[in-house]
Design a protein around this nucleic acid. Structure first.
Lengths: 338, 338
DNA sequence: CTGAAAGCGCTTACAG
DNA sequence: CTGAAAGCGCTTACAG
């Protein structure tokens, strides 16, 4: 049982393929009766046009891509999933195809960014989790393909960045701690090469300084977003600086490491030490009775990113940055020590 | 700056498009020198073949699809993400393209299952989360397109089911409870229309009966996999049957509802009542200090499913069922009452 | 309202 | 080792 082609339905109906094509594409210069006949044969033959041929023929299905460096086996933050879901949603609504791409996969095929997009006829792409030392990174700016980059800064004509206001969110987190009487506040940061880490650091510093506290650089640890490293550095910090009463963490995953460390030396959260995280991953609700954290919504990021892409593609509307809302979710890991 | 076509590179190099095509496809009947020239021009022009044209021309890039009914905005179970990741991984390794599809989206376009696959040139598909009353469901069996269905039974020539041994896993969970001295064990089940619910129910019943306990149907509640319903039914159950000392839940999400309900009437887990879940979602580690549950690995499901698909496509090797391993993860929500 | 023909960008016998 | 030509399954002027 071979696939039926447009030829098969034309023959069966007794018209030309031109007519079939036009009927299927909703043109109204086809008589109602032949339209009906065609519809009937299409159904009987289970005919569906070949999308590749349509594209070549001129009726291109546009495609939007999400490009990530690689896919984890599981991703407890739900970040990539949310982005997929959000982008897929706007793609579907606007009759674009959605495609998921990996820079790793492309590298195997020895293709650069532009080639990758060309190959798949990609009209717009959201890039997430790309490192600043990734070769794809620099190629972006030169590209004529509309692109939104999540949580990173890239200069370029057709590039748009997308993120929450990380500095502000960090500022508010630390401010919450300060308002609760904390004055010795450590920061567990991500990797220094990540844009978000820099921003969150800025917010931390600003909150400390504006509130007249003393900025102590030894209170700040880079933990590469790893739970385990956060755990270790926290143990260190708690040994050398037993006066610390609160931690601001640049991710929930690291916050989990911090809490584990605190517990391991016999202290409790928030009784002895307060902790605030960042991201609001699905597990956050359950961590230590509920982790106080900054809620980011990956779905919204994917959605807004996709909408910006379509605006760039269809109306040539360029935006340099999309700001995504966030919220500070207060749960159970911050205690007032006033 | 228009896309370069094979014609452009042929002209630039001064050879025919035939030669360019063959060089790019790795045939070795092209001289090393022209091969090199072509490589150089390709790079300079940033040329990448148009995948649509390649497919039409005869060099089809095969595609594997994951078909789900719809995408949630966020999915705390990580189930779909794991399947995506697993399927993507084997697709990439075997030079297939991966594509994510939604039955909702297809329905909008008024296409049936076969048409959907035909449109996108899909060679094999993993179907997950499809309801038994979904029209796509019945079309599957007739299809000549290799297909693996997750957590459901479908009869058909080219259909293969994939799941853990749900009955056995349920049996072991309940057995664990019994070994810990529990004799009044409730079951919070999913929806009665789901295959997995039936299997897990079987396992529950078997464990109860084989251990000489009395099967009490009023101990069993259908909660449609919803946390909220599980919460409500648990409250009910605890009122009418205060003798219950343990809950076996057909999902972690429902287990969360159960635990919340238990706490809300002033009891504690596992001190007063033991609970075991199902799935091992990312949050499970943190729920009530660690939820005892059955660990399923969605990534492995996607991977094994994809491998089966490829075996069907390339070697016509048919399998009727793929069994995925699982583990019972004992954490902190079961207490011995012996 | 309908059809013959050209063309989309490739690949692959076939001939040299 | 290389090229002219046919063909993949569509769409779209163009002509009637």
């Amino acid at each position: 049982m071979k696939k039926a082609s447009i030829r098969d339905v034309a023959r069966e109906v007794g018209v030309s393929i031109t007519t079939v094509s036009r009927a299927l594409n909703g043109y109204n210069d086809v008589s109602a009766s032949t339209k009906e006949k065609i519809r009937e044969v299409v159904e009987r033959l289970n005919y569906a046009p070949n999308d590749n041929a349509r594209s070549l023929g001129g009726k291109a299905t546009k495609v939007l891509a999400l490009l990530v460096s690689g896919l984890q086996q599981r991703e407890d933050s739900g970040f990539v999933f949310g982005m997929i879901s959000g982008l897929y949603c706007v793609a579907e609504k606007n009759d674009y195809e959605f495609i998921l791409l990996t820079t790793n996969g492309a590298k195997q095929k020895k293709m650069n960014y532009l080639q990758l997009c060309r190959l798949k006829n990609i009209e717009g792409v959201i890039i997430s989790g790309i490192k600043m030392d990734d070769p794809y990174y620099t190629e972006l700016a030169k590209s004529e393909i509309p692109c939104v980059v999540v949580d990173a800064e890239v200069e370029g004509e057709n590039v748009c960045s997308l993120s929450i206001n990380n500095a502000e969110a960090a500022y508010k987190s630390v401010e919450l701690l300060i308002q609760n009487g904390h004055r010795k506040i450590a920061m567990v940061n991500g990797s220094s090469s990540a844009e978000v880490s820099k921003e969150r650091y800025k917010g931390y510093v600003k909150a400390i300084e504006e509130n007249g506290l003393e900025l102590d650089l030894s209170y700040i640890k880079s933990c590469d977003f790893e739970e385990k490293i956060a755990y270790e550095k926290t143990i260190e910090l708690l040994n050398t600086h037993p006066e610390i009463t609160a931690f601001f963490c640049a991710s929930d995953v690291m916050a989990i490491g911090v809490i584990t460390a605190i517990n391991s030396i016999g202290k409790e959260v928030p009784k002895d030490i307060s902790v605030v995280g960042f991201d609001d991953i699905p597990a956050a609700k359950f961590v230590n009775g509920g982790l106080t954290t900054i809620c980011q919504e990956p779905f919204v990021m994917g959605k807004k990113g996709g909408e910006a892409l379509i605006a760039m593609i269809e109306e040539n509307k360029k935006t340099s940055h999309i700001n995504i809302p966030y919220t500070l979710v207060e749960r159970k890991t911050v205690k007032s020590i006033r």
